[in-house]
């Protein structure tokens, strides 16, 4: 533990996570969100309509319910849009920053040398747009794992490889230390 006995660094000389340029999610991913939203909108709408038309005492309120449903779904849609626009990531030399949140701005930073494994997921619709989802797992439990959707597939693949290489380097370094 000797190599950490140096005095506290001047924090202003360290790279600042706050000032990093955040890359937004690829615009095509909005189409995926809209498509998924549309399916949910129709599914719930059909379910609601079935209930309303099978229960005779609800029928007089059908119009109100329709308006309420559309207003509710509309606000969900707006929230989705804001969330989409606020989502972004930044790849630094030694860590990955992921920012999201609607009412709050949530920034998670995962150092590469703490990543346990990486998963690359491709949804059915995402594949059509050439997009993929990158999932990072750490030993910090579910609260610290992140998944970034709507990355260009090649970019995601490159990120995955970069991280995997970092992890591999880290491991050989550590086993190297162990032998001494």
């Amino acid at each position: 533990m000797d190599h950490f006995t140096n005095d506290m660094l001047d924090a202003s000389s360290l790279p600042k996570h706050e000032e990093v340029q955040i890359t937004p999610i690829h615009p095509s991913y909005w189409n995926v969100i809209v498509f998924n939203f549309g399916i949910i909108f129709l599914l719930f709408g059909t379910a609601l309509a079935t209930i309303v038309f099978s229960a005779s005492n609800l029928r007089p309120y059908a119009w109100y319910l329709l308006v309420a449903y559309i207003l509710w779904m509309g606000s969900v849609f707006v929230v989705q849009r804001i969330a989409f626009r606020k989502r972004g990531y930044a790849l630094r030399q030694r860590d990955l920053i992921y920012r999201r949140g609607v009412l709050a701005t949530i920034t998670t930073i995962i150092p590469f040398n703490r990543i346990q494994h990486v998963a690359l997921n491709e949804g059915f619709l995402s594949r059509y747009y050439g997009l993929a989802q990158l999932q990072l797992f750490t030993a910090g439990g579910a609260s610290s794992d992140i998944r970034i959707s709507g990355l260009v597939k090649d970019e995601a693949e490159r990120m995955r490889e970069l991280i995997m290489r970092q992890i591999a380097d880290e491991e050989t370094e550590q086993s190297g230390n162990g032998i001494q």
Partner: peptide, 27 residues
């Protein structure tokens, strides 16, 4: 293992935020 910061929009002006340090033994 990872660090998360969180700032509610109504806390931006007064410069307040929460910070979570994720460890393998809990947050």
């Amino acid at each position: 293992q990872a660090i998360t910061t969180r700032q509610n929009f109504w806390h931006r002006r007064v410069d307040i935020g929460h910070v979570t340090l994720h460890t393998a033994g809990g947050d």
